[in-house]
Nucleic acid binder design. Structure first.
Length: 652
RNA sequence: GGCGGAGUAGCUCAGUGGUUAGAGCACACGGCUCAUACCCGUGGCGUCGUCAGUUCGACUCUGACCUCCGCUACCA
């Protein structure tokens, strides 16, 4: 039994995606926290991993003629390599296909089933294959998947499944969060969780028909366990659940689960704590949801191919800069927290990165290191003189030394970097005001020694403070300073005490670490760095929609109709009530297009109508048919005949 | 529509019931010369979203409204 180990996790990443800047930010955040806690002397367990059980994965493997296991083994290499090459120092990497994890999932399932939290039921609903998601009838949009990125047809399914009694935990979850509001972070997301839970939790179907991949349901080989139930349990697999009770006691509960905002409310803040309650395990101390990155103002999307691959970007920038690849990787780690407060959305642009690289790293930090060590060589042949640090400068370091721990403890990375850069600025200003070159000229040796010592000791503090963010660059500063003990062996409380730079330390020759990048004017249509991770990381093709026969197609009664009248439906902001003439009758149709079409511009327009769609009541209005519209980035664009044709014309 | 949040300098944002509202970046000018053409300093006539109210006094409190964002409902 030791002290509580600081346990931090990233989500386990879905092997269907190649790692991009989104995964990178989550993982770097965890890495920075882990390094910082180690620096503070705490024992740390930092875990990441991969989520491998999903129908899409099995399908992609099959398309390549591979066994799923072989397929994922290959893809996992991309993650391992990416983390290695971006200085991610995790302690454990968990894969859901590992035996240790399968054992945990199986046992957790059995335990919950024994206590009645998992029961057998009939699931009836609509399933979107590509999204692997079940939907309620009422959630569908025009009979299709409601996910705006998907909108593909869904299949009606009715099957027996196992359900987790999530509804039974509604009150306990609310009580828990009311008593422990600090668990849900950032605070502005707290209400989203509470209102989601208050709106009523439904039991969750946590199994699927077996498809030859995944973890089988104990005693029911016809089913496998649904990926979300499977994946969330990775957090206790790593903690030693069922395998190492002593470790579990030291490690669990997690101190921080980090994730992007899309999987916060439903999964990490609702399903996961409920499962833990069912297993009678303590809940995580903090759930932190960060924002999304856009790239040059646009959402990251596979179709745009604008995902930023951190390794590739770093390699390209290193090429332009002349700095080493590892230093540029560190710069990228720095950038994602310097640019945007962690938790909010941010925009990534290469020009923004280059800009920060030049001003914050090359000019402010790099040049500070360079000018101070260069002067030491000029005035002292590179050997640190004996002196006490200038109290004025010590005072300037005070906010950094005092406030940085709390900033990082509370995941305020942005503020942490502000503190560090505030001190860097103070050091540059100090050099300017003290003007060591003048002291040297005027032979004021004692003052010169104190100034030089103080500045270099300040640089040492900066190196320690930035080391969780930029371990390689910090190590390089450390090396140039000639520090006798390794950076990795430093402990915060001691290392951040001013005056820790030993007299007579022999510094190395000053060499620029961050080399400025020439911002040459590039063609206006410069493309962002595209994802080009080599195979095997390529994304498997999306499964094609199931084909339908010509006869099935013929069952659709599509006709050209004219809109005779249009009005808004009160209380709904997307809906219009339309009166349309189909040639044989006049009927009412409700269409969800009010955001893009004003009622008056629709009257008289010819559109394509699905005439034999079963009527449905929407907002109290019976809709007898549906307008065809193209779906583009969540917008609806009405289809209309390219030439004028009579109302009632058949469309086929 | 419901719930929540935000609207402050060209940009990104900080901020407090009370004399002249701040930071960084960008821009302009000046200084220095150790250094990676760097660093340091100086400079902005900003109606602190709109309108009303509370108050001796509001950018900071209250109400209404406008705009944007998030969650949520509607999406045949």
């Amino acid at each position: 039994m030791g002290d509580k180990v600081y346990y931090i996790t990233t989500p386990i990443y879905y092997v269907n995606d190649a790692p991009h800047i989104g995964h990178f930010s989550t993982t770097v955040a965890a890495d920075v926290l882990a390094r910082f806690q180690r620096l503070r002397g705490r024992e740390v367990l930092f875990a990441t991993g991969t989520d491998e059980h999903a129908p899409k994965v099995a399908e992609a493997a099959r398309q390549r003629g591979k066994e799923p296991q072989q397929f994922v083994d290959e893809i996992v290499q991309t993650y391992l390599q990416t983390w290695q090459e971006t200085h991610i120092d995790y302690d454990d990497f968990v894969r859901t296909s590992e035996p240790r994890h399968k054992a945990v999932v199986t046992a957790a399932f059995e335990r919950l089933r024994e206590r009645g939290d998992i029961y057998r039921g009939i699931y009836e609903g609509w399933y979107c294959v590509p999204d692997e998601t079940f939907w309620q009838e009422s959630e569908l949009i025009e009979g299709r998947c409601p996910n705006p990125e998907c909108r593909r047809p869904v299949q009606k399914v009715q099957e027996e499944n196992w359900f987790f009694r999530l509804s039974a935990y509604q009150d306990r979850l609310l009580e828990y969060y009311e008593a422990h509001p600090e668990v849900l972070q950032p605070d502005f997301r707290r209400n989203e969780v509470l209102s989601f839970i208050r709106s009523g939790l439904r039991d969750a179907s946590i199994t699927r028909s077996a498809y030859g991949w995944g973890i089988p349901v104990p005693d029911d080989p016809s089913k496998v366990i649904y990926v979300w139930f499977d994946a969330l349990l990775n957090y206790i697999t790593v903690a030693g659940y069922l395998q190492d009770e002593a470790k579990l006691r030291d490690v669990w509960p997690a101190d921080v689960h980090l994730m992007a905002k899309d999987i916060f409310v439903r999964f990490h803040a609702t399903l996961w704590p409920a499962i833990l309650m069912g297993l009678e395990l303590p809940l995580p101390r903090r759930l932190f949801a960060h924002g999304f990155w856009t790239v040059d103002g646009e959402k990251i999307s596979k179709s745009k191919g604008n995902a930023i691959n951190p390794r590739q970007l770093a390699a390209e920038v290193a090429e332009r800069s002349g700095s080493s690849y590892d230093v540029v990787v560190d710069a990228l780690r720095f950038f994602i927290f310097r640019e945007v407060p962690f938790g909010l959305d941010g925009d990534f642009s290469t020009t923004g990165f280059v800009h920060r690289f030049n001003s914050d790293l090359a000019n402010d930090l790099g040049n500070l290191v360079n000018r101070s060590i260069s002067m030491l060589h000029r005035y002292y042949e590179g050997v640190v003189p004996a002196a006490t640090p200038d109290p004025a400068l010590v005072a300037l370091a005070e906010p950094l030394v005092r406030d940085l721990p709390a900033a990082l403890e509370e995941l305020r990375f942005h503020q942490a970097l502000d503190l560090i850069w505030g001190f860097i600025s103070a050091l540059n200003k100090y050099v300017d005001e003290q003007a060591p070159w003048r002291l040297a000229r005027e032979e004021r040796r004692e003052e010169l020694a104190r100034v030089m010592y103080s500045v270099l000791d300040g640089v040492r503090l900066v190196a320690v403070a930035i080391s969780p963010f930029m371990p390689v660059a910090a190590g390089e500063i450390w090396r140039q300073l000639g520090m006798p003990t390794p950076l990795a062996a430093q402990r915060w409380d001691e290392a951040m005490r001013p005056g820790g730079l030993p007299a007579a330390t022999v510094t190395a020759t000053a060499e620029p670490i961050f080399r400025r990048i020439e911002e040459k004017r590039r063609p206006a249509k410069e493309k962002p760095v595209a994802e080009t991770t080599p195979a095997p990381a390529e994304k498997p093709a999306e499964p094609a929609q199931p084909t339908i026969t010509f006869d099935e197609f013929q069952r659709l009664d599509l006709r050209v109709a004219r809109i005779e009248a249009a009005e808004r439906i009160p209380g709904a902001n997307k809906l219009l009530k339309l009166t349309v003439n189909t040639g044989t009758d006049t009927r009412t149709v409700v269409a969800g297009i009010a955001l893009w079409y004003a009622p008056e511009e629709l009257v008289g327009r010819k559109v394509v109508l699905v005439c034999n769609l079963a009527p449905a009541k929407i907002r109290g209005v019976e809709s007898q048919g549906m307008l065809l519209a193209a779906d583009t980035e969540g917008r609806a664009v009405l289809l209309q005949p390219e030439q004028d044709v009579p109302v009632g014309s058949k469309v086929r």
